[in-house]
Design a protein around this nucleic acid. Structure first.
Lengths: 337, 337
DNA sequence: GTGAAAGCGCTAACAT
DNA sequence: ATGTTAGCGCTTTCAC
């Protein structure tokens, strides 16, 4: 790397003060057009690149955001990140990547490293779990701008962007009810997740609306994985062999459940109809193609990032909760429409 | 946010110069044990956090790396990123995320923004495409430490970490040959990709070794997608209905091809055996489960990051090309073993 | 072992 | 419309 060209080099070459150059690169109003033109030209010629580091030190704004994520194999959050990245770029921000893939316990440490780097704000793109909120509450109290996606913290007022999972569960279940099903099994995600509670609540609403009594024995928990869905379906078949439909709370478990049904000799959708959740790319190519609930994940990321930047610009802005709508994607697992 | 505690606050409280505090936090040798202890204690008490920005400005080292990625729906690169992130964290680095998801044409601009932020080096975790190398060559010439994964640039000497795709193609094909297949179709990725050429070369090696003549009409191109695999398989069945086996160059296309075979009434693996490539999570849950070639993607990310940091610490270090080995995962699409 | 001085490359505040 | 002065919070260099 050649010797760095600084703002003073440009200033000297243009015969102005470095401050004028600063005004030009920051697009401040009070610079004469002629001066502005000349300075820009010199910037080009000398190949000057302002040092974001120096700017950050002087101005206390780094235009860098922290991105907390847990798991890149999770389709939901991966898509959230895509949307967040696009929005950040549009507004001149970058994300500092911080994945706690292995050990959530290290998160407080990572958060500290992130604040040492003076990020302007932090986006949480990971699921909420129990007992991990202390250090996050502490961030909020320090006044660090913070937005979460699908992460709910009881007690604290914080900005969160999520999908309307109650409605999603309702849509999934109603689709099955409309086809005449009354014994509808559910493979949920793990206990303690808000999205699980919400989707299950939607399921119950739908039953209630249709006058179908709720039967707790039709519910089994999975861990979001293919294998988890496979196993949960096995248990469900043993407990409640007469179910004719299944609401799986994500697509991976739906596909795992399909394997279990296949092994049990049940035909899909003739013997058992299925609705999944997420609309992962594989859903359109399962055998048969999976009916599912599509979530606007990239949009979640975009909105969250936009709100985060608003919060940075106005720390007193109101904390809000935004819920985006889901969409039922009809495919063959619940009788082609 | 309360008023920032600075190095001078700590120094004043400890009754030493700020320079001594600097020595302590940087773990320099020449500080008296007693002083060191006292300073650390004050750091704790005051909640002092060194400003990474100020350190970066003074020391020219930001401990930040740029991460160029194209597509978060690509399993290979997503896993590379996971591995890279873990390795970076281990060594005290963070990644600045830079996805060119939408428009590769903006990459030069993003690269400029990244260098303005004084990243210590850049990791490319995206596939190489034609005609996009000019700005990368320019980075190399500027002396920016650079490592790529599965990205080859003819002419320039650069450090790249990749998987041995020739061997992978060989393993896939030999697995099918061992089962007695002689008419083995291939659904490749798009033309112009090195990994495609290499995997196909491995296929040809395997045929040659087994004394099977190569037949170009058994090859069809796909675009890595489910749909692409589905369509390519359709064309292949039309052209060469007698094939009894398929080597799909990624799992998504393999699963798409399975759909086409299913619709054509071909049984898997009895009529057509299949080997995929990648070992994506869905592969174990396709119907039937997919035999495939597993690539050590996370390890690619780890090694690449390690080499990048080595390059940063020693800019004159030799540029090297590292190839990691693949592994055949036997499942039911080529006759359960 | 420790301290003082200088400066990294910028922006902020005030002056002109 | 432009220049001057003072830092931002650290590390580097050199002195003691």
């Amino acid at each position: 790397m050649e010797k760095k060209v600084t703002i003073r080099d440009v200033a000297a070459a243009a015969g102005v003060s470095h401050q004028t150059v600063s005004r030009v690169i920051n697009d401040r109003p009070d610079v004469a057009d002629e001066t502005r033109r000349r300075v820009w030209q010199l910037i080009e010629e000398l190949g000057y690149q302002p040092s974001a580091i120096a700017r950050g030190l002087a101005s206390k704004r780094t235009y860098t955001l922290g991105l907390i994520t847990a798991d890149f194999s999770d389709y939901f959050f991966t898509q959230v990140i895509v949307g967040a990245e696009v929005e950040a770029r549009k507004r001149g921000y970058f994300f500092m990547l911080c994945s706690t893939e292995r050990n959530l316990a290290d998160e407080p440490e990572y958060l500290k490293l992130l604040t040492e780097r003076q990020v302007d704000g932090i986006l949480f793109a990971r699921p909420s779990t129990e007992d991990d909120s202390r250090h996050i509450v502490s961030l909020i109290q320090q006044g660090v701008p913070l937005v979460t996606t699908a992460y709910w913290l009881s007690g604290e007022k914080l900005t969160v962007v999520d999908v309307d999972n109650v409605d999603g569960g309702l849509q999934a279940t109603e689709c099955l009810i409309e086809l005449g099903h009354r014994k509808i099994g559910v493979v949920t995600g793990p206990g303690g997740w808000k999205s699980v509670n919400d989707r299950t609540e939607g399921y119950r609403f739908a039953l209630e609306r249709a006058g179908i009594p709720f039967d707790g024995s039709l519910i089994e928990h999975g861990d979001w994985s293919y294998q988890g869905g496979y196993e949960a379906m096995g248990r469900l078949l043993a407990k409640a062999p007469k179910i004719t439909a299944l609401f799986a709370q994500n697509d991976q478990m739906a596909i795992g459940a399909m394997r279990a049904l296949y092994e049990a000799g049940r035909k899909i959708p003739d013997d058992v109809a299925i609705v999944g959740y997420d609309d992962v790319p594989a859903a359109a190519y399962s055998q048969p193609p999976l009916t599912t609930i599509r979530q606007p994940m990239q949009q979640v990321g975009e909105v969250a990032t936009r709100l985060l930047i608003e919060l940075i610009n106005d720390p007193d802005a109101e904390r809000k909760e935004v819920l985006l709508k889901t969409e039922l994607i009809r495919r063959q697992t619940c009788g082609s429409s």
